[in-house]
């Protein structure tokens, strides 16, 4: 885990544009990694996506790690890849549990559509709310699931109560469905 003597170009570029945004960086096992401050997260991501020397056009992965007992508790980890320039970057951002903005992070689904579902999954598993996300609801689990299972304080043996059988009418309440069609609001049944 020895830090390299010189700063690698991507980290340097980010630091040049946003001094102080990168709170830590390393290149362990050859994976270039930066940790950014939470308030600069969206700006850094926008830079990473749009800067002509960076051009991270492929959002590979978004996940979180729960460091229970540390502050900030969560770390959201984003893996980026540039298809044209061929480099990779891991961006980490700490998300704390305290304060008015507990467990929140700005969404990057406006930058990469791919982040939409990854953020939903992250919300599902860790309870991190992504502000500005168009459709932030549970993805893999069901609505009535209590808790967020990938948090370290979620007991692996915990059992959830069974979902109660709802009446048919309620289950198929088509009129109040929120289907993802932008033109939906304009359509009126005849």
């Amino acid at each position: 885990m020895t830090a390299p003597a010189e700063t690698p170009p991507i980290t340097a570029r980010v630091e040049e544009k946003f001094p102080g945004a990168v709170t830590a960086s390393h290149q362990q096992f050859g994976d270039e990694t930066i940790t950014v401050a939470k308030d600069q997260y969206l700006a850094v991501m926008t830079l990473l996506r749009n800067d002509p020397t960076l051009k991270f056009n492929l959002m590979v992965d978004l996940s979180a790690v729960d460091f229970l007992g540390q502050s900030p508790r969560f770390q959201v980890v984003v893996h980026l890849k540039s298809l044209s320039l061929g480099h990779r970057l891991r961006v980490k951002v700490g998300v704390g549990e305290d304060g008015p903005e507990a467990c929140t992070l700005p969404t990057i689904s406006k930058l990469w559509v791919a982040a939409d579902w990854y953020e939903r999954e992250c919300f599902d598993m860790y309870g991190i709310r992504f502000q500005g996300h168009p459709n932030l609801k549970r993805l893999l689990l069901y609505e009535s699931f209590v808790g967020h299972p990938l948090r370290k304080d979620y007991d692996i043996h915990l059992q959830q109560p069974r979902v109660e059988l709802r009446p048919v009418r309620e289950r198929y309440d088509y009129q109040n469905r929120n289907l993802t069609d932008p033109s939906e609001t304009e359509r009126r049944p005849l």
Binding site: R177, T180, E184
Partner: peptide, 23 residues
């Protein structure tokens, strides 16, 4: 959501095979 035979809206719901791999 279908308009005749044409799809006008789709919402995908997954998770029926979620087994908690990461946990």
């Amino acid at each position: 959501r279908l308009d005749g035979e044409v799809v006008t809206a789709v919402e995908v719901e997954i998770g029926y095979l979620h087994r908690g791999f990461e946990k």
